[in-house]
Amino acid sequence: MNDELKELSDLKKVKIKGDRKLFSATHEEIEQGATTDVYFIKTREILSELDLADTEVTAEIFPSQAGVFAGVDEALNLLEQKDVKVWALDEGSTMDRKEVVMKIKGSYEDFGIFETAILGAMSNSSGWATAAKECKEAAQNKPMLCFGARHIHPAVAPVMERAAVIGGADGASCILGAKLAGQEPSGTVPHALILTVGDTLDVAEAYHEIMPEEAPRTILVDTFKDEAEESLRIANELEEDLDGIRLDTPSERGGVTLDLVKEVRARLDQAGHEHVNIFVSGGLTPERIEELNQLEVDGYGVGSYISNASAINMTMDLKEIDGQAVAKRGRIPGTTENKRLKRKL
């Protein structure tokens, strides 16, 4: 790992190579402090010059709104080699507005420059996890998968999908995101394959023949033909081997409507394919899921509602300096008791 940035002159250590392919920070750059706000480097330098770098402080972190607390594991990973004590809520816990979700005690020199990274990790992950929880609650006992990786930068897509699983998603399509959450990725095929092959039924047959037995046979049916007609073509051919069909009708054709779901379900049942599940994706929100959940929809794929969720702002305040209660104006001096916090480091 590169040496941490301690003073302004150290910024010369931060080099941008001309052949850099992606603009996202590496793990080493984050640990170096290169993603922090520069004023924390200035703070570090001034405290050092004043012989105050080793001042013992207690910092508290709290959210701007209620939600699901996520990102704590990354924060702890940044602090695990530091001589600090950390108390926090568990990853995936519910949190209230302005509840203290993490407390850090130690030398300001040891953790001050990581404030930006810690708050950023927990703010975004908590926002994504909270959005996923809303969708899962709307879906109730039916599967809800996260398909949001395409809507954000690839460097953070795995973080987002892991957070979605923490919040309640039953699976994720992003390979690395699912792996980080301790799962295998979920998904079948995109429209691109069907467009390239030229016929949905040919793709369904090839998928059934080529893919592993444990891979669900769920086929997109909105690429070329009427969704009900395509569903019947595939169900009549694959019969009991067909697990489900996926409706992803684009907004240009009105999206997946309640009437469309009713028709597809009725026509499948009338043809003796009651076992075929209906999976819906495309522009879903908790409100849309609640509507669809009144019908015989068996699962959901949610993308932009989770990936585009607003971060839940996190604030870090120093509440003790050398054991003395402090606070900036508007806040109450001294540490806040929260019996839900657990010792993490």
Rank of each mutant, 00 (worst) to 15 (best):
E205Q: 12
P158I: 07
M160W: 15
V221C: 13
S123C: 07
E214R: 00
E205P: 07
G187H: 09
A155R: 12
A149K: 08
P154F: 13
A172L: 04
A131H: 10
D202I: 05
A178W: 06
L145P: 05
G198D: 05
V159R: 03
G171H: 04
K179I: 04
H151N: 15
V156Q: 05
L201W: 08
D226Q: 11
Q140E: 15
Y207P: 14
W128N: 01
P143R: 11
L119G: 00
P185D: 03
E184A: 14
I152L: 04
P190K: 04
L195S: 13
E205V: 06
T223E: 12
D222R: 13
F114S: 03
R162Q: 11
P143I: 09
K225G: 00
A169N: 15
L201M: 01
P158W: 07
P185T: 04
S173F: 12
T188S: 11
T196L: 04
F111D: 05
V159K: 09
C135M: 08
E137F: 08
G112C: 06
W128F: 14
H191L: 03
N141I: 04
E184I: 07
G177H: 12
V189Y: 03
K142H: 15
E115T: 13
A228Y: 10
F114R: 06
M144R: 11
I219G: 08
A155D: 04
I234M: 11
R150L: 05
V197N: 01
V189M: 12
E109R: 13
D170S: 09
A117I: 13
P158K: 13
L232C: 10
L119N: 03
V197Q: 08
E229I: 09
A235M: 09
G148D: 02
I166Q: 05
T130C: 09
S126Q: 04
P190H: 12
H208A: 08
L238R: 13
S125A: 09
H208D: 05
G198M: 10
A181L: 11
A228I: 09
N236W: 00
Q140I: 02
N236V: 06
K133W: 07
F114E: 01
G120F: 11
V165T: 03
G171V: 05
G106L: 02
F111K: 14
D226I: 00
G167I: 07
G112A: 08
D110Q: 10
F147H: 15
P154T: 02
I234C: 14
A204T: 10
T223H: 11
E239V: 03
I219L: 03
D110T: 03
L201A: 01
G187S: 06
I166W: 05
E161Q: 12
I118K: 08
G177M: 11
V165Y: 00
I118H: 01
A206S: 14
D243Y: 01
L119D: 01
A121D: 06
A204G: 12
I194N: 01
S173G: 15
D202E: 13
I175P: 01
D226P: 10
K133P: 00
E229V: 09
E209D: 04
E109M: 01
R150G: 07
D241L: 09
P143T: 01
K179H: 10
R162V: 02
E115G: 02
V197C: 00
P154H: 11
D222S: 12
M122T: 14
A235T: 14
